[in-house]
Computed example of a mutant assay.
Amino acid sequence: MGINKEELFIRKMILHLLNNQNGDMKLSKDLFDISADMEDYLKGQIVKLLSSDDAKETKLNQESRVPNLLFSMDESKEVEFIETSRLIAEGLFDIMCDSFLIPAACFVMLSFSYQEEVYYGLLKLPLEEVLKADFRGSGDCIDVGMSKSTALNRRGKLQEAIIIHPVKGSARLYEKRFEMQNGEKIFYLSERFLESIAQMPIKRKISILAKSINEACVHHEMNVQDQIQCKKITLELMENDGFFDIPKISQELFGNTPQAKEYFDKQMERYDLSYDKFMPKDETSLKPFLFYTVTTDLGVEIKVPSNLVSEYIEFREYDGSITLRGIDRINLK
């Protein structure tokens, strides 16, 4: 869904300092007095997370510690909000201390409303960026002043952040895998902090789908024109249905070619996508279906917009020729 930043309102916010690199944890006792600049920065990060196909999604177990704390909290009561945030921050800090590879952070807990629904945000602001800004802390409050010279990157996105929808009992998150002290590499935010299993990002699913279609076509020795046609059909199915329907795509593309279908279905099973249906939020995620990169045996690569293939470009593999029509000007990039 498209998120209108102007309809998003931050209700409450608190900031805690979690520096697992030196064992330093400072927990605020008061809400953060948010400035207009900081509010705009955080709203921008929230919109990116809610709109991104790079984000993961997960269904929350309401009996797990963090969801239970949030869902049982009366958000309207300031004291409850502060105390809950401190308990959540302490739990996160304990997990972070299990790996020095996890970056230290200023941990933000906030509540915001969008279209009359209340959401919670659990965001890790990069500590080194915050400390370069106007940073001041005491035993009761940690404050970050925003100015034109602040180091917080407004264009970039946070590497670790969670948005929780209490009504749906679900979360969207950015996370990274880190090696813990026992040598195990895990997604600690979903697996240990939220105690859930997050789904693969939609952008990754689209990439796997496009790659698997290519491989199935090659496996069945289809020519380039047929491979392009398979991707074109897949995009048309998505546009008509509003989402990628894996079983339908498998049948439509390879229903008459059992070997290619078997190969494609095995790839989907490998990534646990056999019965999946997913809808991209961002058109840029469709890049594998909007552009084709054709590689010759001489190492020449041609990037072709999909909407030009049938009318302006022809690949003839039997004589090794490529015809481009309707060109007014050629530039060297």
Rank of each mutant, 00 (worst) to 15 (best):
118 V>F: 04
120 Y>W: 14
119 Y>K: 05
124 K>I: 03
122 L>P: 05
108 V>W: 00
132 K>C: 10
138 S>W: 05
111 S>D: 02
113 S>E: 15
102 I>E: 01
115 Q>Y: 12
126 P>M: 07
127 L>D: 05
115 Q>G: 08
127 L>H: 01
120 Y>M: 00
129 E>Y: 08
132 K>P: 03
117 E>L: 09
108 V>D: 05
117 E>F: 07
137 G>N: 11
106 C>W: 05
113 S>C: 12
124 K>N: 10
135 F>C: 00
125 L>M: 12
132 K>I: 10
104 A>K: 02
115 Q>P: 04
102 I>D: 02
123 L>S: 00
121 G>D: 01
123 L>G: 02
132 K>M: 14
121 G>F: 02
110 L>V: 02
107 F>H: 09
121 G>N: 07
110 L>W: 03
115 Q>D: 14
114 Y>M: 07
119 Y>P: 07
124 K>S: 10
134 D>H: 14
126 P>N: 10
103 P>H: 06
122 L>G: 08
138 S>M: 06
131 L>A: 11
121 G>Y: 04
127 L>A: 07
111 S>P: 06
116 E>A: 13
107 F>N: 04
111 S>E: 06
138 S>V: 06
131 L>K: 14
107 F>P: 01
116 E>W: 10
136 R>H: 11
121 G>W: 04
103 P>I: 10
116 E>V: 09
105 A>S: 14
126 P>R: 03
132 K>D: 11
136 R>Q: 13
114 Y>E: 01
115 Q>E: 14
117 E>Y: 05
108 V>A: 06
105 A>Y: 07
112 F>N: 03
130 V>A: 09
125 L>R: 00
120 Y>L: 02
111 S>G: 01
132 K>A: 09
134 D>L: 15
104 A>V: 00
103 P>T: 04
125 L>A: 10
124 K>D: 05
102 I>T: 06
118 V>T: 14
107 F>M: 08
103 P>S: 10
122 L>D: 05
116 E>G: 11
134 D>I: 15
111 S>A: 10
119 Y>W: 03
104 A>M: 04
107 F>D: 02
115 Q>I: 13
111 S>I: 09
124 K>H: 12
122 L>N: 01
115 Q>K: 15
117 E>S: 12
127 L>M: 12
134 D>R: 15
119 Y>D: 05
106 C>E: 13
112 F>C: 02
120 Y>K: 03
104 A>L: 01
123 L>Y: 10
114 Y>W: 09
122 L>W: 06
118 V>D: 02
121 G>R: 01
108 V>M: 03
129 E>D: 14
109 M>Y: 00
133 A>Q: 08
137 G>W: 04
134 D>F: 14
135 F>G: 09
124 K>L: 12
116 E>L: 12
106 C>F: 15
103 P>Q: 07
